[in-house]
């Protein structure tokens, strides 16, 4: 059982390392055409949005809960405002966490 877990961890580690390393290693040697570079420039914003929207809308096992019950959505509002103004990771993190902590008392 235990050695099986270690093998799984090693295999997952190898997969993650390969996914992180090889695209950079291979593309690093090539001059990418402009259209590909443009395409890659949209990857970060698209990925982050695809990750975060489900987090904000999900509540108590419901995929979409748009109501005052959904504390992720409520805490998200001040976090979005502070992120929009400051573009700062630290300030947004603090705003969001304080908002969420305050919501526990309501």
């Amino acid at each position: 059982m235990e050695s099986k877990l270690i093998v799984l961890i090693l295999a997952l580690g190898a997969i993650n390392f390969s996914m992180r390393f090889f695209p950079a290693l291979i593309l690093n040697k090539l001059d990418l055409p402009e259209v590909v570079r443009d395409w890659l420039s949209f990857v970060p914003v698209a990925t982050i949005a695809a990750l975060v929207l489900p987090m904000l809308l999900e509540w108590n096992g419901e995929i979409v809960n748009i109501s005052l019950e959904n504390k992720n959505l409520l805490a998200g509002i001040p976090a979005i405002i502070s992120a929009g103004i400051t573009k700062s990771l630290g300030i947004t993190l603090a705003t969001g966490m304080i908002a969420m902590a305050l919501l526990q008392f309501i």
């Binding site: 979005i80 993190l93 908002a99």
Partner: peptide, 30 residues
Amino acid sequence: GLNFALPAMFIALFFMTAENKLMVSTGIFA
């Protein structure tokens, strides 16, 4: 409020990566 650390981080990351209107629209679509 620790359970909100991850969503808060991603909200900041979104605004850090969305440099222009086109990127904002692309992100909203995604």
